[in-house]
Amino acid sequence: MKTLPVVLTTLGAVLCAPWAHAQDAHSEHRKQAEAAQPAQPPSPYAGMQSRPIKALSARQVADLREGKGMSLALPAELNGYPGPSHTLELANQLELSDEQTLRVKGLFAQMKQEAMAAGEAVIEAEQALDELFKNRQATPDALKAVTARAALAQGQLRESHLRYHLAVADVLSPGQIATYTRLRGN
């Protein structure tokens, strides 16, 4: 009679094996289905909440402080008004005279100085806007004042870059401007 428990155990194992296999297969199928599901995309704002100024990346702050163009002068650049920085980069191909080179270098230095100061004003205005919300002090009137200050700072920065494109166009000949435009791919 000792064989009856062995037979029952064996029979139980044989009968349960397909069920256990089905459970394993179901579990594996569920894992595959979960893996096949696209992951929830991260928030487009992920990581921005830890920025010192929420609306500006570290790169943007650095570019503003360095007086970089940040594509602010595209209306001039793409309509045949060379910028001072790129004009100096292309000085040999443009065959700038010594006088032209000195004038463009002077314009570039002035633009850089103005742009750095204007960039600081943009940073300060964006910081004030960020602080307004961070400190829960945003009211319609306060918001209007701070956004107007930020818009004015951004406008002054852009105007300074654009103004120097006008000044460089006055230094170059029409042929040099045409060459500049061709070399820049405009």
Results as ranks from 00 to 15, higher is better:
residue 123 I to K: 03
residue 31 K to E: 14
residue 125 A to N: 04
residue 42 P to Y: 12
residue 39 A to I: 08
residue 50 S to Y: 12
residue 96 L to N: 07
residue 129 L to C: 04
residue 13 A to T: 09
residue 141 D to T: 11
residue 4 L to W: 03
residue 55 A to D: 15
residue 177 I to M: 12
residue 87 T to G: 03
residue 144 K to E: 10
residue 115 A to D: 13
residue 173 S to H: 05
residue 178 A to Y: 10
residue 166 L to G: 08
residue 138 A to C: 02
residue 54 K to C: 08
residue 66 E to A: 15
residue 100 Q to F: 11
residue 27 S to A: 15
residue 58 A to K: 09
residue 65 R to M: 07
residue 139 T to M: 09
residue 161 H to E: 01
residue 174 P to R: 09
residue 132 L to E: 07
residue 167 A to H: 00
residue 34 E to V: 06
residue 157 L to N: 03
residue 150 A to K: 14
residue 86 H to V: 05
residue 11 L to T: 08
residue 120 E to F: 04
residue 149 R to Y: 03
residue 71 S to P: 00
residue 40 Q to I: 09
residue 106 G to K: 10
residue 146 V to H: 05
residue 14 V to I: 15
residue 116 M to G: 04
residue 109 A to N: 06
residue 67 G to C: 10
residue 110 Q to E: 09
residue 131 E to P: 01
residue 21 H to R: 12
residue 3 T to A: 15
residue 155 G to Q: 07
residue 178 A to N: 11
residue 117 A to I: 07
residue 19 W to F: 15
residue 62 A to K: 14
residue 88 L to G: 06
residue 94 L to R: 04
residue 184 R to E: 04
residue 11 L to I: 14
residue 120 E to D: 09
residue 70 M to P: 01
residue 169 A to G: 04
residue 134 K to I: 05
residue 74 L to Q: 02
residue 102 L to W: 05
residue 84 P to Q: 04
residue 46 A to Y: 01
residue 56 L to D: 06
residue 121 A to Q: 11
residue 140 P to F: 14
residue 30 R to Q: 15
residue 75 P to W: 08
residue 168 V to H: 00
residue 186 N to M: 14
residue 101 T to S: 10
residue 12 G to C: 07
residue 5 P to R: 05
residue 182 R to K: 15
residue 88 L to V: 02
residue 102 L to M: 07
residue 97 S to K: 11
residue 132 L to N: 08
residue 43 S to A: 08
residue 47 G to A: 03
residue 2 K to F: 12
residue 155 G to H: 09
residue 163 R to I: 01
residue 61 V to W: 09
residue 113 Q to W: 03
residue 111 M to S: 05
residue 89 E to R: 12
residue 111 M to G: 04
residue 88 L to Q: 09
residue 172 L to H: 02
residue 68 K to S: 06
residue 55 A to C: 04
residue 151 A to M: 04
residue 18 P to F: 03
residue 153 A to D: 06
residue 133 F to H: 10
residue 153 A to P: 07
residue 10 T to Y: 10
residue 55 A to S: 15
residue 20 A to D: 02
residue 107 L to T: 00
residue 177 I to V: 15
residue 59 R to C: 01
residue 122 V to H: 06
residue 121 A to H: 12
residue 97 S to D: 03
residue 158 R to Y: 01
residue 95 E to A: 15
residue 108 F to G: 00
residue 128 A to F: 01
residue 7 V to Y: 14
